[in-house]
Design a protein around this nucleic acid. Structure first.
Lengths: 249, 249
DNA sequence: CGAGGGTTTGAAGTGCATCAAATAGTGTGG
DNA sequence: CCACACTATTTGATGCACTTCAAACCCTCG
């Protein structure tokens, strides 16, 4: 449904920039300057955008596809920080990290995005009070998510975490029976949730048996959100919906 | 050694405010306004300062003692967010959380702190570009810590996490043999690290056996930091020292 | 069709939690 | 200074959840 936006029309590109919450407070000069340097790009699956520690000169606004943000430990295992898609911005926090990316980024589903200059954003944040405030709000939102993530990982079991993840894919205002499509590989969902693929498989089966959700391949059908909230949300300090999106406003 | 600061001298109180990194960029009017409303207070162990969700009108700058920040899940278990002490500020992020505290706070070791008005800080952040930037930096630092915390909890085992915690108590520039004192109850350390007291006890014994550190009650003796880094830091994406403090600059 | 992956299932192992009980430590009043 | 009460800590035994290794299955795409 969004495929038609992936044209190389400069107007659509600019529209995507202007409509993002983070730039709402940008001055016209800043927006113009961003738009002038913005490049719309497409990337193949498997492509590495940057590595943890690289000097950062760009940040990214996603239009489609999926990108995995991850870190690697000294002894080689990978920790997935997040898997992001349309509407998300990533790489921008390098501004506060000595100008280096705080994670690596790899395309996991063919993606299109707008590549933007860090320097321009940095200057505007330093000079535009309102933008700094929007950035603060955005950081606070992220912080809340991270706090919840820690909670989830220590208090929810694997099945509950999957239920919680499925809930985050639901439009909270949609009523009645609905279908949820897993946005990417089950392997990737597993890594996003910090568990092994085998554990994911078994935990999903358990969730199905205990809540009555129906699973067909990568599609999940539920009759109502409460099927999942009753099962998952007891082990969480916040009520459903516990995820607030970084979406446009 | 810091006991002598716990007087009720207004000058020392003001000095504590002025020397904190977060207020470095405050305007003289702002500092004066803060100082006018600031109250130095002492609290007994066990006292609850505020609860998660309470309307926030104050934030806190700690001078001594320990405070546990935690959240409670719907079905009753407690998740410790952090345990903070001297030099730390908490409660200030309620500014970005609908004016409500995002966690509960309880005194776990007799504490003295300076109680400050949220509203004053909020106004200054909204009007003083530099303060907003300092706040952004502070949020970014916290974000880094949270990211690491998630990593630690999923990639390190209990003994490694304890090792990592001990390392965070070391003055990174100190050389040779040194003594580390656990800052509070082992039970609290356990909850801070997200494990059960029994697990903590066993994991600490295992750490002792495998690294050669010596444990006497709440004192830990090590010959050099590498004893611990070799053991703990392989499962982490950042090199020692991975903790940067929120200290004065 | 067949190769290669993602996914599921099975069997066994590991780590942490839990329950229970013993022990050490701390502060109290006598 | 001692005995007591109470709590923190350690130790033991057991169970559960997740991981790991291995193999089967399935699905897709050349």
């Amino acid at each position: 449904m969004r495929k038609n936006r992936v044209t190389h029309s400069a107007q659509l590109k600019d529209e995507d920039i202007r409509s993002h919450a983070l730039f709402r407070a940008g001055t016209p000069e800043f927006i113009a300057s961003l738009e002038a340097c913005a490049r719309a790009k497409s990337y193949e699956k498997g492509r590495t955008l940057f590595l943890h520690g690289d000097a950062a000169d760009s940040f990214y606004l996603m239009r489609s596809g999926w990108v995995k943000l991850y870190r690697e430990t000294v002894d080689g295992t990978q920790a997935v920080v997040d898997i992001v898609t349309q509407g998300h911005i990533f790489g921008e926090t390098s501004i506060f990290e000595d100008g280096r990316y705080p994670y690596s980024a790899e395309i996991v589903e063919p993606a299109t995005m707008i590549v933007l200059p860090i320097e321009t954003l940095k200057n505007e944040i330093e000079n535009n009070r309102k933008l700094a405030l929007d950035m603060l709000r955005s950081m606070a939102r992220y912080r809340r998510q991270q706090d919840l993530e820690i909670e989830h990982r220590s208090l929810q079991n694997a099945s509950q975490r999957i239920g919680c993840f499925l809930l985050s894919l639901i439009d909270q205002y949609e009523q009645g029976a609905l279908q949820i499509h897993l946005p990417y590989d089950k392997m990737l969902v597993a890594s996003r949730l910090g568990m092994q693929p085998e554990t994911f498989s078994r935990a999903l089966a358990k969730l199905r048996d205990q809540t009555g959700i129906r699973i067909k391949g990568s599609t999940v059908e539920i009759d109502s959100a409460s099927q999942l909230t009753d099962y998952s949300c007891g082990a969480c300090s916040s009520e459903f919906p516990c995820k607030d999106s970084e979406a446009k406003e």
